Simulated assay, not measured.
Amino acid sequence: MKTENPVVQIIPISEDEAGQRIDNFLRTFLKGVPKSMIYRILRKGEVRVNKKRIKPEYKLLSGDQVRVPPVRVAERDDAPVSAKLDKVAALEHCILFEDDHLLILNKPSGTAVHGGSGLSFGVIEGLRALRPDARFLELVHRLDRDTSGVLLIAKKRSALRSLHEQLRLKGMQKDYLALVRGEWPAHCKVVQAPLLKNILQSGERIVRVNSEGKPSETRFKIEEKYGFATLIKASPVTGRTHQIRVHAQHAGHPIAFDDRYGDRDFDAQLVGSGINRLFLHAAALRFDHPGTGETLRIEAPLEPKLRNALKKLRDAVK
């Protein structure tokens, strides 16, 4: 099949879109069009700003008029979004909050935040299919594929900038729930251990505690004890890849059903509870709204399967 914009389009640049390079603007505006084609139409002068030829590094100004030529690009017959309409529709029911600046999702476990690395479908592709008229939808942060919970998406470039600044200044509070092996010690409230990321030949990312790694800190709090397992709240101060999972393992209490850093014997003890996925859930996110400045705290409920599992563990220790 083919996708196309069959006519010339004139796009007015808003204040929110100003400041970005024309090539980056086109990569967002012309989703699915290869970068090579975008640079080709720029080089040939088919893209114009205020009726003038421009270079790829030109930075857009508010009020600029961008001429975008007709673009046709072949898609695979198994285009990811059309092949997975059921997943796209399901995302609608996962939305926790939405306004002109933000869209906040309770991401399901097992769904990647974006396609790539052998995956054809991700949350961001699904949301763009769900909101075809949205000119801007970008991830503010990421969650591992098997981690569920609060995921923040910006609907304006200014919102993305504001939220990234809050992340950089550690002004965003993230709280996760995790079920870990054994009895978490009450005195272990903070794990500070540097993390080093390794990329294997397969492309798989493995993170280890290593003195040469980046400084990393996670705060932990006991929520509930079940004898051979503990439900903890984990609040990362830094945002390293797999941070909570590796810090829990480093403390001697790996997370249930963690296929990279977990303990199979512990997982076997949980089979009767009905858990069959990584028990790591982004339960709450607190931040300042990029438009109003109001402090928001968004909570994402645990999926019923995990709630039922905790009830079984609770009943077993009574």
Rank of each mutant, 00 (worst) to 15 (best):
K305F: 13
I298A: 07
F257W: 11
H289Y: 15
A256E: 14
H289C: 09
D258G: 10
S273K: 05
L278W: 00
N276G: 11
G274I: 06
S273H: 02
L280D: 05
P254G: 03
K305C: 13
E299N: 03
R297D: 11
D259I: 12
D263I: 06
A300E: 08
A268W: 01
R260F: 14
A284Q: 08
L270F: 06
G274S: 06
P290D: 09
L270V: 02
T292H: 03
H289F: 13
R286T: 15
L280K: 06
R264A: 05
A256Y: 15
I255K: 02
G293L: 15
D288G: 05
D267Y: 12
V271Y: 08
D265K: 12
F257Q: 06
D263L: 12
P301S: 03
V271N: 07
H289P: 07
L278V: 01
F257A: 02
D267N: 13
D265M: 03
D267Q: 08
S273N: 09
I275A: 04
P254Q: 06
G272Q: 14
E303G: 04
L302F: 09
R297C: 13
F279N: 00
L285E: 00
R260T: 14
G262P: 03
G291M: 01
P301V: 01
P290I: 09
I275V: 13
A283E: 11
F266V: 13
G291C: 11
D267G: 09
A256D: 12
R297V: 11
R286N: 02
R277F: 01
P304D: 14
Y261T: 04
K305A: 12
P254L: 05
P304L: 08
L302Y: 02
D263Q: 04
E303H: 06
G291N: 05
A268M: 07
N276R: 14
K305N: 09
L302P: 01
E294R: 10
G293Y: 12
G272T: 07
D258C: 10
R297P: 00
L285K: 05
P254E: 08
T292D: 04
P290E: 08
G262E: 01
A300F: 00
D267F: 12
V271R: 15
L270G: 00
F266K: 08
D267V: 11
L280H: 01
T295Y: 02
G272I: 12
I298H: 00
Y261R: 03
R277Y: 00
P290Y: 02
S273Y: 07
P301C: 01
